[in-house]
Design a protein around this nucleic acid. Sequence first.
DNA 1: CAATAGATGTCGTTC
DNA 2: GAACGACGTCTATTG
Lengths: 249, 249
Amino acid sequence: MRVVLHPSPRETLHLVEEALRNGETILLVGLCGVEYEGRSSATLPPGERVVFLKSDGTLLVHQRVGNNPICWNPPGSRAKIRQEDELLLLESERLKPRENVKITFLQVVFAGSFELVDHAELELRGTERELVETLIQHPNLVEPGFRVVKREKPTRYGVIDLYGMDGEGNTVVVEVKRLASFQAVQQLRRYVDLLKQREPGEVRGVLVATRFTRGVKALLEDCGFEYRVLNPRKINKGEKGVQSRLTDY
Amino acid sequence: MRVVLHPSPRETLHLVEEALRNGETILLVGLCGVEYEGRSSATLPPGERVVFLKSDGTLLVHQRVGNNPICWNPPGSRAKIRQEDELLLLESERLKPRENVKITFLQVVFAGSFELVDHAELELRGTERELVETLIQHPNLVEPGFRVVKREKPTRYGVIDLYGMDGEGNTVVVEVKRLASFQAVQQLRRYVDLLKQREPGEVRGVLVATRFTRGVKALLEDCGFEYRVLNPRKINKGEKGVQSRLTDY
DNA sequence: CAATAGATGTCGTTC
DNA sequence: GAACGACGTCTATTG
């Protein structure tokens, strides 16, 4: 760890260059302006910000408010720093697509480099993946008599989350979402339309999600699709965690 | 600005409490474990990370790699810090939806608080909004004879980017995207289907974007839609920045 | 490498 | 406040 308060441009330059060589994490706080040029382009006039440079090339510029960085370059980018008169220029280049972030420091208030040791990985629960697994283990949550034929069935127009048969031998396409949006319905529709061309007999579409919006239910009805509300809490406890609702069609 | 190296839990506690009171931006570096509970839930075993706490309630936990924070709470959350034996507990609470991030510091290597003055705002160019404006100024980019009737026409199923008439009085629905995806086609389809019920005569769908994938073009053709490739560079220069392609239907 | 969909997405805008 | 779509989305997964 190395930390400097109110460093001179020269001191900051050295700290950053050494940290880049050593693969350390860099934090800079100071007055700077930012230019971005790439998929889009942007200008951010000078202000005091936190600049975060990681050893994997990630560059983040954070303002005093907001969840997201105001400017950034993703992992894999290359950063270079140089001094021009009393200004310090930090430039990050991404190759594909070509994107360039140029930070001009008028004044650096704080510069620090840190060697972070961290081999831990996030263990996340409650993802869509888990919802699908739940349905596979408990196909009756889709409906009594439902049999899973294939998970993640690839088609010309994307991958179907779950695909199976109902008790009467009809094809059932299941789209699973944590939050059901218009998009989800349209995705389901794409798959159902495709399978209608290929499969004999009826093709039903079912949207399973933990939450629905009103507009979505209307659109589902218009499309002749059905939906199921999953309750993730109850699922975890092994109870019956589904409210069924069949639209008539 | 206040900075402490290898602070004791007590020192960190004081620094953070004072910074929270003063609305300052806080940076902590150290060994910590994280628990998240909310829309989803997650556990991150201990490791060395950068913790970023903003005066608007934003909490970010960054690992040594990756563009995105591994854990976070968005603006509007409330942070509290307290000491338990030699451990330091930083807890952030969001109310709607209820989400909780709890950081347990086993060791703090660096603690800093900063008063950031920044009134600048990002000026971004090249967004979808600009593409739509270009089409309004140059409706012939959609096709010769096209007349804009309405921009951002709201419907039951969303807002149509651009809506107008072709030279023969047919309704034309235009969906504009920077990158054309399956979703964009489906969005267009939703609008076209809706207008077919309402408008007399033919309803055409046109997807205008700067980039298309092969699958998207296939789906467009299946739906009987047309597409236009916009070249943003040429548009900026005022040249004819479009390649037309009419699917027959 | 392109293409496709998920995400604790976040964020802005509209209803 | 809910809902809906854009985003320099980013990221993982798969062909």
